[in-house]
Amino acid sequence: MIPPAFEYARPASVDEAVRALADAGEEAKVLAGGQSLLPLLRLRLAFPELVVDVGRIPELRGVREDGEALAIGALTTHHDVIHDPLVRRYAGLLAGATATVADPAVRHRGTLGGSLAHADPAGDLPAVALALDAELVAVGPAGRRTIPAREFFLDYLQSALSPDELLVEVRIPKTEGWGFHYEKFQRVAQAWAIVGVAALVRRADGHIAEARIGLTNMGSTPVRATAAERALAGADGPEAVARAAEAAAEGTRPSQDLSASPEYREHLARVLTRRAVLTAGGMG
């Protein structure tokens, strides 16, 4: 379909973008790569009065090292994230999971910041950001603030960003040396994950010293499988991992849709957590 009519602004800087957003109140939408927003507009599920296109703000693009973290510009495309040597070295989970997002053409346009700000619990990267203990940096009229991923995803398609704030950077603590794997189950190629599991594993002396598990599509926001994480600490082999993974769905509230019932999603969370951790821990 043809999108509804809107006004269009193409700011050249973050300050200009924030001013445009502040002036428009709640009626503006930020356009980055457009791979979530344009389908919503085409299906007439969104009716912004103003679209603020931040796609030409060069300072929002790129990856740099900043002490113990990577700072990834919000406008960095999935394609660039996947191929970035710093991301591959220090945040392999992000590179690996991003390579499973949609398809090559979408990954050329879609951005890391856009997919996090969209806050779709079925999106792959919110759960990955959660597992990586990422921090999201936003700029608004009152200045800059840093939001931990755990506090960023509030509800279905709702983030902690206020309407006049722009997500500018994603900070990811380095996890060099950790094992990682993103395991997702989808009905057909390029479909949304019915459930996805992002696993990070730090091994020591032949057992799992620490595991972090982020779950995709197991509720109205991405969630951490905290019970499974606790149970995985100390696991020393595939059987111990399988036992711990039984706790993966604890505390989740998965939805019912055409693809799956809540019970089926809980089952998937357990199975995929086992697989993801075994692969991440080099035990598979």
Binding site: G34, L38, G55, H79, A105, R109
Partner: peptide
Amino acid sequence: GTTVKSCSVLAVQ
């Protein structure tokens, strides 16, 4: 130089 789905790009972009 890279592929896009032209239904998911605005002409102004």
